[in-house]
């Protein structure tokens, strides 16, 4: 049984061996946080895409942008999802596109929900985990991000949802990345989000810091966003 999964982020897995090997500890939830526009989403896209290339299915929850923007952004880095979508390996829960006012039909692997209906989001997560687990025994999940949820729900409810999501993901033995923009919620809420998460990585635009991950603590390395996505450099 593997203990870690490859992050798909060049340089990241070499940052240090945790108790469990190198990469992101399997069956954990990793919080990626930092100021706006520091590459959190890109990191999570790399993580998802790398898993897909390894034959691992992915459960993706979108709250900041819809499926089309996701595809566009990933295409910018040369990461194409079409085959994975056709092969039912990429399952999307889109909680934001309803805001456009257009109607998008659901499909096997594409479910619409609403940001302000966390109960329904959780139902879709339930169906989604079942679906991706059938596609591959190892799967990944990306939740991008908690940020917008906080604009549409009371803080407490967002944390409740986050806990329920974590529980569901870990029961199904998936490995997940969750993004959050530092500074959009009060310190109390921010600390609650951090303390719930298994691993914490901070991106500040210049440095990536593993604040906590499988025994690793406060490992800092510079990074850049290149045409290969987030690339961690040697100090």
């Amino acid at each position: 049984m593997r203990l870690c999964v490859e992050s798909g982020v060049p340089g990241f897995d070499d940052l240090g061996y945790s108790d469990l090997g190198c990469g992101i500890p399997e069956n954990t939830v990793t919080l990626i946080y930092g100021p706006p526009k520091t590459g959190k989403s890109i990191f999570s896209h790399q993580f998802a895409y790398h898993g897909l290339l390894n034959g691992e299915s992915c459960l993706c929850i979108l709250t900041d942008y819809g499926i089309n923007e996701l595809k566009q952004n990933m295409m910018g880095f040369g990461w194409f999802l079409e085959t994975q979508i056709q092969n039912d390996m990429f399952y999307v829960i889109d909680a934001i596109s309803r805001l456009t006012g257009d109607v998008f039909p659901d499909s096997n692997t594409y479910k619409l929900t609403s940001l302000n209906d966390p109960a329904d989001m959780m139902v879709k997560v339930g169906i989604g985990t079942r679906f991706v687990l059938k596609r591959s025994d190892d799967f990944r999940s990306v939740f991008d991000s908690l940020t917008t949820s906080l604009a549409f729900n009371p803080d407490k409810l967002v944390i409740r949802f986050y806990r329920a999501y974590m529980h569901r993901l870990k029961e199904a033995r998936g490995t997940a990345i969750v993004n959050y923009t530092e500074g959009v919620a009060s310190d109390v809420v921010e600390n609650a989000i951090k303390s719930v998460s298994d691993n914490i990585i901070r991106l500040d635009g210049e440095y990536l810091t593993i604040e906590r991950m499988g025994g690793l603590k406060n490992i800092k390395a510079p990074y850049r966003i290149t045409d290969k996505g987030v690339t961690v450099e040697k100090e």
Binding site: M122, V123, V125, F161, A164, R168
Partner: peptide, 9 residues
Amino acid sequence: CAYPGIGSE
């Protein structure tokens, strides 16, 4: 009263 993940509406 539904467990999270099950819809009861």
